[in-house]
Amino acid sequence: MSDLPTGPAIAAVLYRPTPAHLDTLAGLAARAPAAYLYDNGGLGAVDRARLAAIPGLRLLGDGRNAGIATGLNAAAEAALADGRRHLLLLDQDATPGPDLPARLVAALERLAADGERVAVVGPQPRAGEGAHKPPRYPARPGVVPVGSLDPVDFLATTGSLIALDAFRAVGPFRDDFFIDGVDLEWCFRAWARGWSCWADRDTGIVHHVGGGTIRARFLPVAMPRQSLPRMATYLRNSVYAWRLAHVPWRWRLRQAAYLPLQAGLYWADSGYRPAVLARLGRGVLDGLRGRLGPPAGLG
């Protein structure tokens, strides 16, 4: 079974979704050949019934927060079992335009026609209302752009189109990372196994992370404002990734310089509370010791 002319199958991991987000997903799912939605918590009985009534939509998960990686893996495995070729990944941090699926499929097919083994292609994040800081994707050294398509070290799962043959070859997202860094680690692993990751600078998506932006007073540095458990998990997974052979040394060195600055900004934004510093420190220590899995307090 191949993807229908209406576009690729879609997948989303739901965690306490807003009514507006569910409306967007329901509209996309109704136009897609298939949709796989994973309930990671907060989806009520009325909303489950509404989504289950959409033809071609499958609800996965039991409402417990198993982490975004588990949800994405379940959706990808279901799509593979259904014979799908591509899977468009969505979440609650982004607002996709109606033309996003078609544009990304066209980009992937263009790259494949040029001989690229494409693992994932995604849009360029744009800042929306509220001054949120969108993600930035570092360019992949030594690989030449193809028109508006830029080779990147990694890109967020949000709004990205995964080639499911690449998912089968590269392997699943890391469940023990739970949330932060699962896309970064997977993309580095894809490059190491002969697949490539691309961002289309002509295709945008409004994408924000967290509940605002923390900015340094005297340096051109900004970072998302997130919950303390989420920030500690980000530090943990970033530090743990230093031991992975497929993570390039240039990225490890960059993070070694950047993570202390981010932690300091976060601590300052909290009012220099000792409990915050202690939690961040435990996150770093857990990363060094390889203590992964569901983080305490994330819900």
Score class of each variant (00 low, 15 high):
N237P: 04
A35N: 03
R174A: 12
R254P: 09
D153M: 12
T233W: 09
G211P: 09
R64A: 13
E185M: 11
A119Y: 04
G128D: 09
L100M: 03
L149G: 02
R16N: 14
S2W: 15
Q226W: 10
Y137S: 14
A20F: 14
G264R: 02
G71F: 05
G128W: 14
A34Y: 04
P260C: 06
Y240W: 14
V284D: 03
Q262W: 11
N40Y: 03
G212I: 03
L285D: 04
R217S: 09
A245P: 15
L253E: 14
V105I: 12
Q255D: 07
R215Y: 07
L28C: 02
C187H: 04
G42A: 10
E185P: 07
D3V: 03
H246N: 06
R289T: 14
L51M: 11
P220T: 08
M231F: 13
R189P: 10
A107P: 05
P294N: 05
L184P: 08
P101V: 00
V143S: 10
R201M: 06
L265D: 06
L25R: 06
A131S: 09
R236E: 03
P141D: 09
N40G: 15
A222M: 05
D114S: 14
S238Y: 08
P260H: 00
V284G: 01
A107G: 12
G147Y: 02
L100P: 00
L111H: 01
P55N: 10
V105N: 12
W191G: 06
P141E: 06
G204V: 01
A107N: 04
P151Y: 01
R217M: 03
L149K: 01
A69H: 01
V46L: 14
Y137I: 09
